[in-house]
Design a protein around this nucleic acid. Structure first.
Length: 324
DNA sequence: AACCCCACCTGACGGC
DNA sequence: TGCCGTCAGGTGGGGT
């Protein structure tokens, strides 16, 4: 399931293959994949065709391509893009760079044809950028780029404010972002009256973390998902954020996590990180940390927030009576 | 503010 | 065989 590392892998692929190329043709094969573009497929097509992809940008799990529009005069506004193609992969979205001759994928939803291009190594780039999505939780739409703070009141005062799609302006910075402010995060975390996993999954508080990496980071930090946020000491929170960074960086190094064929990165290769997960999806299997101590402790699965949470009952003790 | 449920989707899988 | 319920889960919206 695409979380931050998977989306970052896709972003890097896009930056390599798509940056600087012009969108010459847009085919929407399933309107449901652009349902957030309320003006519809024709409007999307009219805006995208002739636009040049300036960059590939990510915040948390949101990804966007800032666009230089057809005929946009660089002198008027300094050339800064004010429109972007937003992409969210949802649960099963893929962005594939493919030759036009490649057969259509079963769940191909949107096809963008691009002007000829090469990557930085001079290799001829495939002609198409395809959005494939089985479950249709993801999608793409046009967004206005607006100067925006980062969901961290009291965070870094950035000048000038970064340009972010309106629809992502409520998304906090992610822990791999150089401008992520731990102090601002911790201040807001302590003010919450909720459990730590709920907070980790709140993209407005800290972004990029989904169910998988939340469970992995909590296991690594030896914290139970129900631990009240207002009982976390600064060093506990710092260690947890470090574990979030660590698990996501390791996934990034491995090219993203993959559990089945649903998730494929931008060039069509699956990641290999799933095998090194310690807790997620491992119900009934030994806790690796306990096993190293000679203990036979089994990972348990609990239903929490209408999804599964995996914990070690020994390493991650549940808070009593909601207090710690 | 916190927290709940729902909708949006497809496909795999288990039970009968 | 096949039907039906459950599960996977990111995001946004609405209600309490």
């Amino acid at each position: 399931m695409p979380e931050l590392p998977e989306v970052e892998v896709v972003r890097r692929g896009l930056a390599q293959w798509v940056r600087g190329r012009t969108i010459t043709k847009v085919e929407v094969l399933d309107e449901r994949s652009i349902r957030r573009h309320v003006l519809g497929a024709e409007d999307l097509r009219g805006n995208l065709e002739g636009a040049r992809v300036v960059d590939a940008v990510r915040r948390g799990k949101f990804l966007w391509l800032p666009l230089q529009e057809d005929g946009q005069n660089n002198a008027n506004d300094g050339g800064a893009p004010h429109l972007a193609l937003m992409v969210h992969l949802g649960m099963s979205g893929q962005l594939l760079i493919e030759d036009a001759e490649a057969p259509d994928e079963k769940h191909l939803k949107v096809r963008l044809t691009l002007s000829p291009g090469t990557d930085t190594g001079g290799n001829v780039a495939p002609a198409e950028l395809r959005f494939v999505d089985q479950r249709i939780f993801g999608g793409m739409f046009l967004a206005d780029l607006v100067p925006t703070a980062d969901g961290h009141p009291g965070g870094l005062a950035e000048t000038p404010l970064p340009l972010v799609p309106v629809e992502a302006s409520h998304i906090a910075r992610d822990p791999l972002d150089p401008a992520f402010s731990f102090d601002a995060f911790y201040q807001r975390l302590r003010a919450r009256k909720t459990g730590i996993k709920r907070a980790l999954l709140d993209q407005g508080l800290i972004s990029g973390i989904g169910n998988i990496y939340a469970d992995e980071a909590l296991w690594a930090a030896k914290l139970h998902f129900a631990r009240p946020t207002d009982t976390l000491r600064r060093k506990d929170a710092l260690a947890l954020v470090d574990e979030c960074r660590d698990v996501m960086n390791r996934a990034l190094d491995a090219g993203g996590t993959s559990f089945d064929s649903l998730y494929v990165n931008v060039n069509g290769a699956s990641g290999y990180f799933a095998r090194s997960l310690n807790a997620y999806g491992r119900e009934g299997e030994p806790c690796p940390r306990c096993a190293a101590l000679g203990l036979d402790t089994r990972i348990r699965r609990d239903s929490f927030m209408n999804r599964s949470s995996y914990t070690c009952p020994v390493c991650q003790r549940r808070p009593r009576n909601g207090r710690w």
